[in-house]
Write a protein that binds this DNA or RNA. Structure first.
Lengths: 118, 118
DNA sequence: TGGATATATGAACATGCATTCATATAAGGA
DNA sequence: TCCTTATATGAATGCATGTTCATATATCCA
């Protein structure tokens, strides 16, 4: 692991410098990675799908995704932490709904990508 | 874990049925999750960033992301598997470049999301 | 052919994380 | 107040995965 000089001589030192300078810093790439990680789980994706169709309580989500209430609660906590869902409490019942308008755009692009391969 | 009937009575059985019927099947959500998982790692994100700026050989990538050549190769293999990068061989040197036009759109949306929170 | 360089890859290891189980909290009803 | 129901949460567990080390393959050069 030496300094970032181009070994292949296919790219000028100036260009190399530019690329390095404008690279996202460690913090930024970590944040981005954390964000994408949230979508990297089938259960969470299904939860997000159901919430995109209708506001739902935990029990309903639990039966829709066919997972234990505890598992769903844990996942919802993570989604809340990343501000992808919001809650509304009514007595004992907590209603969850989506809290991010970007989600659908991100999904459609991902689906496009998958559609083009194979 | 019982069948998907609405427990909260906040949503009609017909609507519940519709939501369930149109839900992405297990295979689809798994594929989507796999796709997002690829972006859920800071090292891979940095590799993708550098490749978005310039075609690069493994050694250059290795010094740019400051990781061992082996680690970079492993990650590149994963990116290749998901058809996010493509390769071009010239003698001993293998040049990598991006092979997905959706990547930038996905990134800009993610950055938007992060920008809006805090 | 032998050596050097660029890249790929398998095994090992450590860490992260999704799920489960048990239990806590909170609210409503009897 | 006691019981039931809805949700949250901490600890434990098992599996996935990123990195490293050692080594294999492939290409170029002398």
């Amino acid at each position: 692991m030496d300094t970032a000089t181009c070994l292949c001589k296919s790219i000028s030192p100036e260009e190399m410098e530019m690329i390095t300078l404008h690279a996202p810093n460690e913090e930024t790439s970590l944040h981005l990675a954390e964000f994408f990680k949230v979508f990297g789980d089938a259960t969470r994706l299904r939860i997000i799908y159901f919430l995109s169709r209708h506001e739902l309580c935990v029990a309903d989500l639990s039966s829709l995704v066919q997972m234990q209430q505890s598992a769903v609660s844990h996942q919802l906590k993570l989604l809340r932490l990343h501000r992808l869902v919001k809650t509304r409490k009514e007595g004992k019942i907590v209603y969850y709904s989506l809290d991010d308008k970007h989600i659908n755009s991100i999904f459609s692009i991902a689906v496009e990508h998958l559609g083009e391969n194979e």
